[in-house]
Design a protein around this nucleic acid. Structure first.
Lengths: 349, 349
DNA sequence: ATTAGCACTCTCATTATTAGAGTGCTAAGG
DNA sequence: CCTTAGCACTCTAATAATGAGAGTGCTAAT
């Protein structure tokens, strides 16, 4: 396929252009290539090759007398080469050390998921200087294990939710004052016996269904109980973790305000980005989406590098970096991979 | 004082310039004033007045042949006039209705503080199109009432904290496996009997002190208990609620990227902004800080409108709007006031 | 005290000009 | 047949020149 339409030297030229442009965002000319990436031929030759590459759609010219700039397709080729040659793992000496240290750091805070997730997102963005994003496990991925309902001061109830993955969530909610602690315990027992081992989302569905089906049969209390359960289980806060939106403004790619607004808008629309990234939770390893490959309008000028994190073999959520298409893919890929590995590892225990 | 150095017509001219400039950010000329704000005199007269106002430091010219622009001092005068004439309450018919509706909305979600706070911040920013900020109650403001420590699955402990203000916070933490539920109950009892009615911050200080003083005397378990307490009470998440950073970019005042970065930086530095705003928590009613009056470097080009929200008479935290100095102060002041009122009202029950 | 009139100033948009970078093409050389 | 030197050509971006327009400050008259 694509790899075959180019001879070795063409590939080298393409990669040279991409690397140079990633390094600094100025159109790269033929003379510059020969100086910086000695391929043993003259500018004229490079020019010919570049013309070909342009014809294939890997490069383009901002205007007639400028150098070349990679197209999204050009980046794609570059990334595929990167991923194929496994050059990605070249930085493993650094990476190994990083994974070790960072895993230890996560160990220390893993009992508070929110803290752990924001730490991961932060690290990602700080080290890459792109925008770090993390999608927490979605309800449809979480297995229910045990629930406790504890009456608390008047009509408040503390819900403590324990899942198979060891995730503990807790929240306070309000119930009808008529519901006693005893009732709550009964409700909890009911939930625990009926639904243990099932997935949160399904449970919620089942509850709603039961509520409808047997509305007439069940007594008031039970009906109320179901309502409590449903509330208790709606933990989907539609929340995602984002970090680095500020530092990204220092990149020349975001020197014009329209770009920043695009990015902000895309991130602000949590639902869309959640849906988008969630699709990668089943993927194997690091995935890259480049510029116009992106289904979301506002992200057409950006690239996304994602990797799922897992609990054992089951995918839990997604970690991602969002940056300009002119992104340091090598770094981004290994960073996302490493952080995903750390988080997964922490989940395992 | 300041009010006396200007005759009535001068004040009118100043206010006209400010209003016009707030309305659209273009230097306003003498001719324009006579057209839009009929004061019964000619452009030439206005010119004379404007020259005076400039001498006093209320107006300035971007360049010789441009119209006038308000200085920060000019805005200050305008705002003081606004606050003095109580014109602020002119919009009360709208305001009243808003307060009623919004209070009801808050009622529905007040049992989850996080939700309530972000709702308040959101509303503020959406309706004003500036950046909404909310400082949650700080540990030194929260009165301890009761704590529960519940062992949960292995070495996890659920901490449920109840305060005088009815704030319930809960979190999961990890303790030494040797500590039993019985120990935890004893610890909780100890805390409840010793510290009820005191302020969180003080309690923490006392705990630390005890830990030091009696280190040798107390047995291992007690020492561990103290440690648990301290952890349990460190609820200061240094978190603030921010909303509207995105929409603010649409304002012409933020068309250049430096401004956005300034604003982002200021907000990102949560500690600074927290400290800054916290100083207004004891103030009475709405306060306005304009441009260079601001102690924080990054906020010198911005204005802040703040108001404390209270539980009864005790100030709890602060609500604020951050926007350009060319801010619609009338709107901002009444919005911040209204939202603060709603939040306070919700706290009362 | 106010105002009409006018000269003056400064900005901003428009146009012209030029240096520089980089290309594409052609023709010569291995 | 691939490579390369040479050269004309193209396009940009920076700089300068020009002029219209807006708004002022000042003066002299009311």
């Amino acid at each position: 396929m694509v790899f075959d339409m180019l001879d070795d030297r063409s590939k080298q030229v393409l990669c040279a252009v991409v690397q140079s442009y990633i390094n600094s965002p100025e159109p790269v000319g033929s003379r510059f290539v020969t100086k910086k990436y000695p391929l043993g031929c003259s500018p004229a030759t490079i020019r010919n090759i570049m013309a070909d590459l342009e014809e294939f759609g890997f490069l383009s010219q901002p205007h007639t007398s400028a150098g070349r700039v990679p197209t999204d397709r050009g980046y794609r080729f570059f990334v595929d080469t990167l991923l194929n040659t496994e050059k990605t793992h070249e930085g493993d000496e650094i990476s190994k050390e990083f994974v070790r240290q960072f895993t230890r750091k996560l160990e220390g805070i893993k009992n508070d998921l929110n803290v752990m997730f924001s730490e991961a997102t932060n690290t990602l963005s700080v080290m890459s200087s792109y925008v770090g994003v993390l999608i927490p496990p979605q309800p449809e991925k979480i297995t229910f294990k045990k629930i406790d309902l504890i009456r608390y001061k008047g009509s408040n109830v503390v819900v403590i939710l324990l899942t198979d993955e060891g995730i503990i969530k807790n929240r306070v909610m309000r119930v009808d004052p008529l519901v006693t602690q005893e009732d709550l315990s009964r409700i909890a027992d009911y939930l625990n016996s009926e639904f243990s081992g099932l997935i949160l989302d399904d449970i919620r569905g089942m509850l709603v269904k039961r509520m409808k089906d047997e509305k007439v049969l069940w007594d008031k209390l039970i009906s109320k109980a179901i309502k409590v359960c449903e509330q208790a289980l709606s933990f989907s806060e539609d929340e995602i973790f984002v970090s680095g939106l500020y530092d990204v403004m220092d990149l020349p790619d975001f020197s014009n305000i329209a770009r920043i607004k695009e990015l902000s808008r895309a991130i602000k629309d949590k639902h869309t980005i959640l849906k988008l990234l969630d699709e990668f939770s089943d993927a194997e390893g690091v995935q890259v989406v480049i510029g116009d490959e992106n289904p979301v309008e506002d992200l057409r000028n950006l690239s996304i590098v994602t990797a799922p994190y897992k609990e054992g073999n089951r995918p839990m959520g997604v970690i991602a970096l969002i940056g300009p298409t002119r992104m340091d893919y090598l770094k981004a890929i290994s960073m996302v991979g490493a952080v995903a590995k750390c988080v997964s590892r922490t989940f395992r225990d």
